[in-house]
Design a protein around this nucleic acid. Structure first.
Lengths: 237, 237
DNA sequence: TAGATTGTTAATCGATTAACAATC
DNA sequence: TAGATTGTTAATCGATTAACAATC
């Protein structure tokens, strides 16, 4: 009973499976975005040195990461940006649409709805719910479309009818766990959690967490550490 | 991450000679938040098993992490939640106030301003700027206070006069790099970047990045992988 | 003492890096 | 060919884990 349920699942499998390491997966979206901007800029090929610099990683790491997807480069030449971009998108699953439900229409929820990066990457926001009567029934514009804020009670129906894949929790901390349970019960197995709580979910459900407070605290830590140490080299504005 | 092996022979200061590992630092805010909720709930002590379960990590990892801060537990008993919480806050630098400037007063910028988790953790938002004439001059409420949206031109003055430590960039991708450069020139050395771009900053400036798109793409990856594998191994609840 | 739980060790696992042979 | 750059190797580094002696 002391162990979290989540940690139990991965013990016995003899990893012959050729999965991409998590650290690499976490970098693929960055490579993808930079490649997109290179395509827009009209480049046709790019070397690992150049791409790595644009992505803020070392060339060795970049080549290692890309080699895990396959041999998509040309020695002496570099990578075809369009082709590589397509391979990364395919690997990440961006070549098919993913339907997203957003729970919570506060400031942050509305900011997410109007965030252009979703639609442009193939994510479709199929619904937005909120429990606050003042907010229910109002509209939020998403690009060309308009989204109606639905009452909290219709969450399950929304998930089922839209066949949503991903639930985004943007509620206060107090309601997040209950929302997560309702999402899972309705069939959702991927959750993006913005509430400052650790969610407990059944094995097989994937939760990712975004917490501005945590990021700020880590910055504060480094700021403090810097103040403690005598300034060495560094700094040239 | 320069490391200075300097011996300030203080009895109560734990041996932090080579610094807390990044992976541990990233978890400290989570431990801190859970401890805060335990304090609120009236608990006085907690075991590593229990705390680990609440934080979603393994007990071994938790004890290892905490042992890097010092020996703050009692064998056979556990940890005093108040004391441990204070040690983590001190380690993270939360026992002193940090002043934050927010650049960009769009949906997301305003969501951040009204995010309670900042003030409650000792961060003070000292200013909010935006380049859009329609937005400049409007007000945003932060808890009890009200924040006036300042014009972009006053960014440098704001940073200097408030002695801000941290800059938060919530602008569109196009303007983010320019804003970063202005922040750094004005003396900021810690940046939290919400714009979907990789920022280039001088050595000594710390940048952390939050990107919802990246998180969603990683979820999509796992969702796809799950669909591909005929759940043979991998899953047993 | 007997039971509980920490702090630490040593082994393992995974990720990063430098170097270079392969090859365009 | 000569120069450029990938893909891969092997070494290193860092993080995780299981186990248990220390000790409350």
């Amino acid at each position: 009973m002391s162990l979290s349920r989540r940690t139990l699942g991965k013990a016995l499998t003899p990893d012959v499976g050729r999965g991409i390491p998590d650290a690499t997966v976490a970098r693929l979206p960055i490579y993808g975005r930079v490649l997109t901007s290179l395509i827009t800029a009209g480049n046709s090929t790019v070397s690992s040195d150049h791409l790595a610099a644009l992505c803020g990683v070392s060339p060795a790491k970049l080549r290692k990461d890309l080699s895990l997807l396959g041999s998509y480069g040309t020695r002496g030449v570099g990578y075809d940006v369009g082709f590589l971009s397509a391979q990364i998108d395919r690997e990440l699953g961006l070549s098919r649409p993913w339907r997203v439900v957003i729970v919570g229409a506060g400031n942050l929820g509305r900011a997410l709805v109007s965030y252009r990066g979703f639609e442009s990457r193939g994510f479709e926001i199929v619904g937005l719910v909120d429990s606050h009567p003042d907010v229910v029934g109002t509209r939020v514009t998403v690009g060309a479309r308009e989204l109606l804020v639905l009452p909290s009670a219709s969450l399950e129906a929304l998930v089922r009818q839209s066949h949503a894949h991903i639930g985004v929790i943007v509620t206060p901390a107090e309601s997040a766990q209950a929302v997560a349970e309702r999402l899972v019960a309705a069939g959702i197995r991927s959750i993006l959690n913005f509430a400052p709580v650790v969610l407990t979910v059944p094995v097989g459900v994937e939760v990712r967490k975004v917490d501005f407070g945590v990021e700020l605290q880590i910055l504060a830590f480094h700021e403090q550490r810097r103040g403690e140490e005598p300034m060495s080299q560094a700094m040239h504005a």
